[in-house]
Lab assay of single mutants.
Amino acid sequence: ATNIVGKVKWYNSTKNFGFIEQDNGGKDVFVHKSAVDAAGLHSLEEGQDVIFDLEEKQGKAYAVNLRIK
């Protein structure tokens, strides 16, 4: 899925991951530091509006192509 809109539920910059809540009511999506770095960001803030693509690997969904809304 592409261009999914959501809000950062939480992001832990020490542990380098967090979760994004989808605006469409879907399951929360894992986001890793690598996606944050690829977006040219240092971190994510709770409540921040983002747009992302959804990829699945080994049955787990995660956010890629992250951008600030």
Rank of each mutant, 00 (worst) to 15 (best):
Glu21Ile: 15
Lys60Cys: 04
Ala1Tyr: 13
Leu41Thr: 06
Tyr62Arg: 11
Leu66Cys: 02
Thr2Lys: 14
Gln22Pro: 10
Val8Gln: 01
Phe52Met: 04
Gln22Ser: 12
Gly59Asn: 13
Asp49Thr: 15
Ile51Pro: 00
Gly47Pro: 02
Asp28Arg: 04
Asn16Ser: 11
Glu45Asn: 11
Val5Arg: 14
Lys69Val: 04
Asn16Thr: 07
Gln22Ala: 11
Leu66Arg: 00
Gly59Asp: 11
Val50Phe: 05
Gly40Ala: 07
Ala39Gly: 08
Asn24Gly: 13
Lys7Gln: 06
Glu56Ile: 10
Glu55Lys: 09
Thr14Ala: 14
Lys7His: 14
Asn65Thr: 05
Ser13Tyr: 12
Val31Ala: 03
Phe30Glu: 02
Ala61Asn: 11
Gly47Thr: 05
Ala1Leu: 12
Gly59His: 13
Val64Trp: 10
Asn3Trp: 04
Asp49His: 15
Glu55Ala: 13
Thr14Met: 13
Tyr62Val: 06
Ile51Val: 10
Phe52His: 02
Val64Thr: 09
Lys7Val: 06
Arg67Asn: 08
Glu55Asn: 11
Gln22Val: 14
Gly6Ile: 01
Asn16Val: 02
Lys33Pro: 02
Glu46Gly: 11
Ile20Ala: 01
Tyr62Ile: 06
Gln48Thr: 13
Gly47Trp: 05
Ser43Thr: 14
Val31Met: 06
Gln58Asn: 14
Glu21Asp: 07
Phe52Asp: 00
Ala63Phe: 01
Gln48Glu: 13
Glu21Gly: 15
Ser34Phe: 13
Leu44Asp: 01
Val29Tyr: 07
Ala61Tyr: 11
Phe30Lys: 02
Phe19Val: 06
Phe52Tyr: 08
Phe19Met: 06
Gln58His: 15
His42Trp: 09
Phe52Arg: 00
His32Ser: 07
Thr2Asp: 14
Phe52Cys: 03
Asn65Glu: 06
Tyr11Val: 03
Phe52Leu: 03
Val29Phe: 06
Ala35Ile: 08
Ala35Phe: 06
Ala38Tyr: 12
Leu44Thr: 01
Phe19Lys: 03
Phe17Cys: 03
Gly25Asp: 07
Asn3His: 08
Asn16Gln: 14
His32Asn: 06
Lys60Asn: 09
Tyr62His: 10
Lys15Cys: 04
Phe30Tyr: 07
Gly18Gln: 01
Ile20Tyr: 00
Lys33Gly: 14
Ser13Met: 09
